[in-house]
């Protein structure tokens, strides 16, 4: 009997080490940053220091809301270190899923067995979604646990919405990497595409917030789509979440079709 979703389960089990490593990294970052809020973010001294910084800088770093618990969590965790770690994990997995597998010569043998190429892309994309979901759930739980002790005062519903957007944003760079890997069969192009989505999104947001002259850049920034209305303070923009996930789905579909149509391993 053929096992249920063999490629999906294999992709998940093969990457348990990296999943664990990223989970530890995220846990460490959260445990380091959030408990500091009462002494840093909330203090009047810190606020004076931030007020003394150039406005451009505080805007670029999202430190303009750092004086509130949700704002602090957004600025340090979801907007910066968490975003960085999750994007790296997601891009790494997305690039390995097809492009890396093909470049290492493994995909040829897999495709010689009784699988379709669409199945390969879809099952591996599902494994990517599940891993990003696992890490995001971990982030949700850790922030929830620290919410009281660290006096963050975050609304649980808003936290949930923020985590969904956090996951959708990271997934977008991962699916971009997966898609380009499936298109080209090259891991380095896949990583470049995924990193470009994450980095340009961040940069366009940072620059776009500087003045009304360049705020059109915000429209091009997935980072801004996700975080523009401060979901952890104001609740999620579900339309943005659906949009991000929709683009990811389209990228996965494009990758599947592209792989279906081309020569492998040449």
């Amino acid at each position: 009997m053929p096992r249920f979703l063999p490629l999906f389960t294999k992709a998940l089990t093969d990457s348990w080490r990296s999943t664990l490593a990223w989970a530890l990294g995220l846990t460490g970052a959260i445990m380091l940053y959030l408990p500091l809020y009462p002494s840093i973010g909330g203090s009047a001294q810190m606020q004076q220091m931030i007020d003394a910084l150039p406005q451009e800088m505080t805007k670029a770093l999202n430190y303009d809301q750092i004086a509130t618990g949700p704002g602090y969590t957004q600025a340090t965790m979801f907007g910066l270190i968490g975003f960085l770690l999750m994007s790296m994990a997601s891009v790494g997995w997305g690039a390995a899923a097809v492009g890396g597998d093909e470049e290492s010569g493994l995909l040829e043998l897999t495709l010689a067995h009784s699988v379709t190429r669409i199945q390969v892309v879809l099952e591996r994309a599902l494994a990517l979604v599940v891993r990003v979901g696992i890490l995001s759930a971990l982030v949700f739980l850790l922030v929830l646990v620290l919410n009281g002790p660290s006096k963050l005062d975050i609304d649980v519903g808003h936290l949930f919405g923020a985590v969904v957007l956090f996951a959708a944003l990271a997934l977008l760079s991962g699916t971009a990497a997966l898609c380009v890997g499936a298109l080209t069969g090259r891991k380095v192009y896949a990583i470049a595409a995924g990193a470009a989505v994450a980095v340009l999104g961040y940069v366009f947001n940072a620059v776009g917030r500087q003045s009304p002259d360049v705020d059109w850049l915000l429209n091009l920034s997935p980072y801004h789509w996700a975080y523009g209305n401060s979901p952890i303070t104001n609740g999620a923009d579900w339309g943005a979440a659906a949009g991000l996930l929709g683009i990811s789905a389209a990228l996965i579909a494009l990758g599947a079709v592209a792989l279906q149509r081309r020569d492998v391993g040449v």
């Binding site: 093969d14 290492s104 010569g105 493994l106 043998l109 010689a112 009784s114 699988v115 379709t116």
Partner: peptide
Amino acid sequence: GTGLRRRIGYLPGELHLENRT
């Protein structure tokens, strides 16, 4: 599709195997 490849056994000329297994 898949039905045919189930009836074939293939050894690639350049065999690459996963390392961690």
